[in-house]
Amino acid sequence: MKPLKQYWNESYRRPGLKPVYDNWLDKYDDYLKEERDRIVDLGCGIGNNSLYLFEKGILPIACDISEEALKKLNEMIPSITTACFDMTVGLPFEKNSIKVIIADLSLHYFDEDTTIKVISEIHRVLMFDGLLLSRLNSVNEIRNKGEVEQTKEKYLLENEGIYRRFFDRQEINRFFSGNMWTLVHAEEYEMERYTRKKFLWEIAMKPSYVV
């Protein structure tokens, strides 16, 4: 298995990369405009969603494991604050300090224990009325991945030297358990991604707290 940092640094060294966004965040526009600070773009890559927010006058904290990605992002949007860290070892934010976390196609690269840990960290740092906006690989995306190798986990596959996890509604419910999260929105759809079709789930979750 290739370390994720190495994989993404190599990927983002490709020439000619520029941030390109679709409009999946439009439906949350009122909420995002209301909360112009304390927004984190987690696993931001070269800044697709950060650019979307920037053009609306919102300056998120753009976070990624890849220095190469953040370098390209800063070249395009110098005024955005960036943070380079590995989300699997924790998020460098205080408890209940972040209003919105955007995790667009960045939470599905880990084994089960690590995925649970990352989701728990997101829950920790979100404010009580915070919001997680995320897109995840759908199980229907597996057929688009070419050569894959099955792991011990049903929906965790090896592809291109890294793990890739795939979700259906049951898996979403399993990882985002009812006593920790309240579902605001969930839908599965197909989109154009890097000139290819991609099947994914879009979810919006609010943290729940057991009293």
Rank of each mutant, 00 (worst) to 15 (best):
L4A: 01
Q6V: 15
W8K: 08
W8M: 07
E10N: 14
R13D: 14
P19I: 11
V20F: 10
Y21P: 03
D22L: 12
N23C: 08
N23Y: 10
W24N: 02
L25C: 05
L25E: 08
K27I: 13
D29Y: 03
D30E: 09
Y31P: 00
L32E: 02
K33H: 10
E35D: 12
R38L: 15
V40H: 02
G45K: 02
I46M: 06
N49K: 10
S50Y: 05
F54T: 11
P60W: 08
P60Y: 09
P60Q: 02
P60M: 06
A62L: 03
D64K: 08
E67V: 10
A69L: 03
K71P: 01
L73Y: 02
L73K: 02
N74C: 06
P78W: 00
I80A: 03
I80G: 04
A83T: 03
V89L: 00
G90F: 07
G90P: 04
G90W: 04
L91C: 03
N96G: 04
N96Y: 06
K99N: 09
I102F: 08
A103G: 11
A103K: 06
D104R: 11
S106Y: 09
L107F: 08
L107Y: 11
L107W: 11
E112A: 10
T114M: 14
I116C: 05
S120Y: 07
E121P: 03
V125G: 04
L126V: 04
G130T: 06
L131P: 01
R135L: 10
L136E: 07
N137Q: 09
N137E: 13
S138M: 07
E141W: 05
R143G: 12
N144R: 13
Q150I: 09
Q150P: 04
T151H: 08
E153H: 09
L157V: 11
L157Y: 14
N159G: 00
N159A: 10
E160T: 00
G161F: 12
G161T: 03
I162M: 01
R165Q: 12
F166H: 13
F166W: 02
F167T: 03
D168A: 08
R169K: 15
I172V: 15
R174W: 11
R174M: 09
R174P: 02
G178Q: 09
G178P: 02
N179I: 13
N179S: 15
M180V: 05
V184I: 15
V184M: 13
H185Y: 15
A186P: 01
A186F: 05
M191R: 14
M191V: 15
E192I: 15
T195L: 01
T195P: 00
T195V: 00
R196A: 14
K198S: 15
L200C: 15
E202I: 08
K206P: 07
V211W: 13
V211Q: 12
